[in-house]
Write a protein that binds this DNA or RNA. Structure first.
Length: 502
RNA sequence: GGUCCUUUGGCCGAGUGGCUUAGGCAAAGCUCUGCAAAAGCUUCCACAGCGGUUCGAAUCCGCUAGGGACCUCCA
């Protein structure tokens, strides 16, 4: 089965065929670094990390571009028409670039915690003012934008007369153009008057005097409009047409719709072959976002320092939590759900560790051919499920089918001869490929360091001796005290004892 | 108000026109164990309501009810 991707543009699953054989160009809308990332931000970056990793697994050479929006998104229709970044900077008494750097660093740190692979190129909006201005000039020249009082607007009505504006987001153009249909626009919005039509959007905004971030342009000092950076940078690094553009569903309109319009005018072609949108993370059924005041920041999640959290959560728990649902479904967050994921992930990972150590003599025929066949089916479905629009939850379900088999093989509850050696090898390969390489998961327990291991071994030896003398007071003391320190020891069936962090 | 989406067992979450017992967590029982923990086995068989299409629907269609997203910065 070939890879199928749900294309938001057609609202259907389509067979994935890259524009250039063997290569994939992928652009994902990155963070606005005017504040700390929260749980909601984790979803797209983990989801598209999986896409990136899976495409790589499928032998594609992927150029993965993810921008940093450090010029801020401008509230072009906002009450005070001010730059989010500059406003907060004043509150915090920081240089705008200092603050932007701070949150960029924090974002990178969080991505590393999540074990997300760095994008191939991570362009910044401030670093591409020239390209953005160039693109705007081009659009004006082609007659699809106009200047008013130092600002430049895209002429949506003219565009819509020639192209399919609104298709991606399912908008009806007449409705957008007829402002009386939109209650929100009955408010008195600044800057609205200078537009030819309410549906027009800004390509360039003249900067008010108090605006800190500003650049010279053919239209005076100002700053780039809301959508142009992605069009400019995607075009620069991926060309006029590229394979995948990703982002959150909330960006469908107007952001991505506008991107299509801008790029189409400049490049005479629709920019993106496959649009992918991840769904939102909700909390008590409501989207997590600043406007709802229900944000849990990543630092709070990792530290457990939040009223809704009973404990800290490891980044891998969160990653696993995200993978347990499909990227196009809403995912409802709760402390309980995360605790459940933590436990599940631990169990799965331990089974994986056990699997890596299993080694049996060569066995050409399975005495339990039914089991052997089942395992092979489960394993082969890994790729089949991923090919079906990245069905990570189903892959995980299959892994949990196999986990008891692994543990039983280790404990001898299932004899080694039950399955073929090659089946065991396939298990090892598939688990390593999918858990580590594609899902990007890794061990939560990093305490297995060189200093601690021999010390633990010593303790376990002493305990073993005590047990053999039926000195349970000593053996229990060791076990209980270790538990207090957060280390759990487990007596295995083969007489050995393993340990790990609780 | 407009457009679109969604509604699955105690909780989280896949899934599809006719055996998937999806899976996880929680709970209960059992096995193992000096006792634990871990592990294994077993139990818990849901698909908002009402109609319709069909030989057959949780899965398709319609209506009703609830929830949500977007229309404004938003992952």
């Amino acid at each position: 089965m070939a890879l199928h991707i749900h294309n938001s543009y057609s609202r259907k699953k389509e067979i994935f065929e890259s524009i250039t054989p063997g290569h994939v160009g992928m652009y994902v809308c990155g963070p606005t670094v005017s504040g700390e990332s929260h749980l909601g931000h984790a979803r797209p970056y983990v989801s598209f990390d999986i896409v990136y990793r899976y495409l790589t697994y499928k032998k594609y050479k992927v150029r993965y571009v993810r921008n940093i929006t450090d010029a801020g998104h401008f509230e072009e229709e906002g009450r005070e028409a001010e730059d989010k970044v500059s406003k907060k900077a004043q509150l915090e008494k920081l240089e705008p670039m200092e603050m932007v750097q701070k949150y960029t660093n924090l974002f990178h740190w969080a991505m590393k915690q999540f074990n997300c692979i760095e994008p191939s190129i991570e362009p910044t909006a401030t670093g591409h003012i020239v390209e953005q201005i160039g693109m705007i000039e081009d659009i004006i020249e082609k007659g699809f934008a106009y200047e008013v009082n130092g600002s430049v607007y895209f002429d949506v009505k003219k565009y819509a007369a020639n192209y399919d504006y609104g298709k991606l987001s399912g908008r009806v153009i007449e409705e957008l153009l007829d402002s009386s249909n939109r209650e929100n626009l009955t408010r008195d919005l600044e800057g609205q008057q200078e537009k030819k039509d309410a549906a027009d959007f800004a390509l360039w905004k003249a900067a008010p005097a108090e605006h800190i971030m500003r650049w010279k342009s053919p239209w005076g000092e100002g700053f780039p409009g809301w959508h142009i950076e992605c069009s400019a940078m995607a075009t620069k690094y991926l060309g006029p047409q590229f394979d995948i553009h990703g982002g959150g569903m909330d960006l469908l309109f107007p952001h991505h719709e506008s991107e299509i319009a801008q790029s189409t005018i400049c490049n005479h072609t629709a920019p993106v072959k496959y649009w992918m949108h991840n769904n939102m993370i909700t909390i008590n059924g409501r989207k997590m976002g600043k406007s709802y005041n229900n944000v849990i920041k990543l630092t709070e999640l990792f530290s457990g320092n939040h009223p809704l959290l009973s404990q800290p959560f490891h980044p891998m728990t969160i990653r696993f939590f995200i993978l347990q649902s499909h990227y196009r479904s809403t995912l409802d967050f709760s402390n309980e759900a995360l605790m459940s994921s933590e436990k599940a992930f631990k169990r799965l990972w331990e089974a994986f560790e056990v699997l890596k150590k299993l080694s049996f003599e060569k066995n050409e025929t399975a005495t339990d051919s039914e089991l052997d066949t089942k395992i092979n089916t489960w394993l082969n479905e890994f790729e089949e499920f991923m090919d079906d629009d990245f069905g990570t939850p189903r892959v995980i379900a299959n892994m949990f089918e196999i986990a008891p088999v692994i543990n039983s093989l280790k404990d001898g509850l299932i004899p080694a001869t039950a399955i073929k050696s090659e089946t065991l090898e396939l298990m090892k390969n598939k688990f390593a490929d999918f858990l580590e390489n594609i899902f990007g998961l890794k061990n939560m327990d990093e305490s297995n360091n060189e200093l601690l291991s021999p010390v633990m071994q010593l303790l376990l030896d002493i305990r073993k001796e005590a047990k053999s003398k039926k000195d349970f007071a000593t053996s229990d003391k060791i076990r209980n005290q270790l538990i207090e320190m957060g280390i759990v020891i487990k007596d295995d069936k083969d007489g050995n004892t393993s340990w790990g962090v609780a």
